[in-house]
C-alpha cells in the first residue's frame, strides 16, 4: 500500500513535469506543424537561467522562474523569426528534423562551454523542501507543487484557448491559416506568440522539473525523445490528450522503474507502441 502510494505520487509528479514541457511542444507541433526537436533545449535553457539567477544573481525562487521563462523566450524568438519560420508546415519533415537537431547541437555546445558539463542545481526555497503530511502519508512538498503547477497549466491553457480572443484567433489559424489571414488575422504574429508560449511552458517545466530531470548539457538530447513521444501519443495540438498521455506514460515509466529497474525503458516504449497501434492519431488527436 505504501509502495503503491509512493509510486502514485511520483508518477503523478513525473507525469505533470512531462505534461508542462510537452504541452509546449504540442502547441508548436499542432499549430505550426513543425517537428521541433529543439524543445528540450529550450526547457534546458530555462533550467540553466533559473540556476544562474538563483546561485549567482541572488534572485528569489519565484523571480528566478520568471527570469528563466522570460530569458528563454527572448532567446527563442529570434530563432523563430529567422529559422523556424522557413520550415513551418513544409510537406517534407526532413529539413525540420535537420534544422531543429542542428539548433539542439548548437545549444548543447554553447551550454557546455558556458556552464560546464556538471549538473546544475536549482535549490528549492525552504517551504518546498520538507515533507508534507497528508494525513494518510507524507510526501515531499516539491512533488505537490509540481502537481499543482501542472493542473494550473492545464486549466490556464484551456481557458486561454477556449475562452479568449487570442484563443479564437489561434484556433482559426490552426484550422485554416490562409482563410484566417484573409479574414485579417495576423497569422505571423499569432505564430510568434504561440511559439513564445510554447517556449515559456518548456522553460517553466524545465525549472520545476529539475528535481526529476536534472539540468546538464545533454538534457536537450536525453529527454527530447520522451517529450516527442508524449506529444505523439496524446495527439499533436490536444491539451487533454497531452495531459492523458503524460500521466499514462509517467505512470508506466515510474511503475516499471520501481518494480523492474533492470528493464530500463522497455515497458515505457512497449506502452508507446501499444497506444500508437491502437490510436494511430494519438489519444485525442485531430483527424
Amino acid at each position: 500500500m505504501g509502495l503503491a502510494l509512493g509510486i502514485a505520487t511520483d508518477a503523478l509528479a513525473y507525469g505533470m513535469v512531462l505534461y508542462i514541457i510537452s504541452i509546449g511542444l504540442s502547441v508548436t507541433m499542432g499549430l505550426m506543424r513543425v517537428i521541433n526537436l529543439a524543445h528540450g533545449a529550450f526547457a534546458m535553457i530555462g533550467g540553466y537561467l533559473a540556476s544562474w539567477g538563483l546561485q549567482s544573481l541572488g534572485l528569489g525562487y519565484g523571480t528566478a522562474i520568471l527570469f528563466a521563462v522570460a530569458g528563454a523566450v527572448l532567446i527563442a524568438l529570434p530563432l523563430e523569426r529567422f529559422l523556424y519560420r522557413r520550415v513551418y508546415g513544409t510537406h517534407d519533415p526532413l529539413p525540420q528534423v535537420l534544422l531543429t537537431i542542428g539548433i539542439t547541437f548548437a545549444i548543447i555546445g554553447i551550454a557546455n562551454s558556458l556552464f560546464g558539463p556538471t549538473l546544475k542545481p536549482i535549490p528549492l526555497p525552504e517551504i518546498f523542501r520538507g515533507p508534507v503530511d497528508l494525513g494518510f502519508r507524507t510526501v515531499p512538498a516539491h512533488r505537490l507543487v509540481v502537481i499543482a503547477a501542472g493542473a494550473a497549466v492545464a486549466l490556464g491553457l484551456w481557458l486561454l484557448v477556449e475562452r479568449t480572443d487570442f484563443g479564437i484567433r489561434l484556433r482559426a489559424a490552426v484550422d485554416d491559416a490562409r482563410m484566417a489571414s484573409a479574414l485579417g488575422i495576423r497569422t505571423d504574429v499569432i505564430y510568434a506568440a504561440a511559439f513564445a508560449l510554447s517556449v515559456a511552458l518548456g522553460a517553466l517545466g524545465g525549472v520545476l522539473g529539475a528535481e526529476i530531470l536534472p539540468i546538464e548539457p545533454y538534457y536537450a538530447l536525453r529527454y527530447m525523445v520522451t517529450f516527442l513521444v508524449v506529444v505523439s501519443v496524446g495527439g499533436a495540438g490536444s491539451i487533454g490528450g497531452a495531459l492523458g498521455a503524460a500521466l499514462l506514460l509517467g505512470l508506466v515509466d515510474v511503475t516499471a522503474k520501481y518494480l523492474a529497474p533492470e528493464y530500463g525503458e522497455f515497458f515505457f516504449y512497449l506502452a508507446v507502441i501499444a497506444v500508437v497501434a491502437a490510436f494511430p492519431r494519438g489519444l485525442l488527436g485531430r483527424a
Binding site: V229, S232, Y263, Y269, I273, V276, R281
Partner: peptide, 19 residues
C-alpha cells in the same frame, strides 16, 4: 502508422531493442 506517429514508433523500436 504514418507521419509523426510513425516517427515515434521508429524511436520506440530502437529504444525497445536497446533495452
Amino acid at each position: 502508422a504514418t507521419g509523426l506517429p510513425q516517427l515515434v514508433l521508429s524511436i520506440a523500436v530502437v529504444q525497445l531493442a536497446s533495452a
